[in-house]
């Protein structure tokens, strides 16, 4: 087998996530297939795609929340099947209510992040409490530690979930739509938190509908459509830098191989190629570009965030 990514077939120890033609789904229903993806330490990668594009299924597959149906999946060099150190992945789910049925303090929610590190019968140690406090400090909620989570705004609740993931001292944060459904003020605060984490070198895989709030910290953008990866490259390739208000044509897709509905690159921009799986796709060769909305990606700056991915 020829290796399109030289050396990429072997899981190098510095690969946090390494997928080779991986597929995921539920029981006998494949949702995501033929995915090649690697994530290295320090990278901040946005996973973009419309509802139903498979991006949530992909990250849930990595987290062991659905079925791995084919291909190779390695986490920290260990095949997914044998991977047990789940706390290395810090999951930030998309939740709108932190505790809908009972009272719970911010600390009580964040403390759940420490459980994988505690013995079954152990009480939280001083070290656990210190880490919980530190995590809250990082997301700017140290002064709300003892408040009932029901009193927090939507964006603050999102930050509580980030703190919970951080409390597990993970090697990578896996976030599902952290900025979705959050008002502008809270969105700024969230962006600041993510920027602070990026500054500290935190590796992040962020499922999102919108790249704009994250643009400054992203090292790479991956787009998905129809359960496949359609683009994998630097954010600057996704559209022309600085063009925030203009039409944003969807990201580059994978040539004619899977009938993509989008032009590569930006409308009218300089010709550039996207590189994926060792194939080069050139602008103009398949001018079957659809509309920019068929991927459902919002324009940068658009504020429709009432989106939920299954």
């Amino acid at each position: 087998m020829t290796a399109p990514h030289p050396g990429g077939r072997q899981a190098r120890p510095d690969e946090i996530i390494a997928l080779r033609s991986a597929s995921f789904g539920y029981a006998d229903r494949t949702v995501v297939s033929g995915v090649d993806l690697t994530l290295h330490p320090g990278e901040v990668v946005a996973l973009l795609g419309a509802n139903g594009s498979g991006k949530s299924t992909l990250v849930k597959g990595l987290l062991g929340l659905n079925d791995h149906l084919g291909g190779s999946v390695e986490l920290f060099g260990t095949p997914l099947r044998r991977f047990r150190r789940r706390s290395l992945l810090g999951y930030v789910p998309q939740r709108h209510t932190l505790s809908g049925t009972v009272a719970a303090t911010v600390t009580e929610i964040v403390a759940a992040g420490r459980l994988p590190h505690q013995g079954l019968l152990a009480r939280p140690s001083r070290e656990d409490r210190r880490i919980i406090g530190e995590s809250l400090e990082l997301v700017g909620l140290a002064d709300r530690a003892r408040d009932d989570v029901a009193e927090l705004s939507g964006g603050q609740q999102r930050r509580v979930l980030i703190a919970r993931a951080l409390a597990g001292r993970p090697e990578v944060l896996v976030m599902d739509e952290p900025t979705a459904g959050v008002d502008l003020g809270n969105q700024r605060a969230l962006e600041a938190v993510l920027a602070r984490l990026a500054e500290r070198g935190t590796t992040m895989l962020v499922v999102t509908h919108e790249v704009a709030p994250l643009r400054s910290i992203l090292t790479r953008v991956v787009t998905m459509s129809g359960g496949r990866i359609t683009f994998d490259g630097p954010a600057s390739r996704l559209d022309v830098a600085g063009d925030v208000t203009g039409d944003w044509v969807g990201p580059g897709a994978r040539g004619g191989h899977d009938g993509h509905a989008h032009r590569h690159g930006q409308r009218g921009g300089p010709e550039h190629t996207t590189h994926h799986d060792g194939h080069h796709h050139d602008d103009g060769r398949h001018d079957d570009a659809g509309t920019s909305t068929s991927l459902g990606l919002t324009h940068p700056g658009t504020r429709d965030r009432r989106t939920h991915d299954a």
């Binding site: 987290l63 062991g64 929340l65 789940r86 999951y91 009580e108 759940a112 459980l115 994988p116 597990g168």
Partner: peptide, 19 residues
């Protein structure tokens, strides 16, 4: 208590973190 709380509060997260 902490484990029962975590599992009841967010079963998906609990599963993802290996509980």
């Amino acid at each position: 208590r902490p484990r029962l709380f975590a599992v009841a509060n967010d079963p998906e997260y609990a599963r993802a973190s290996g509980l």
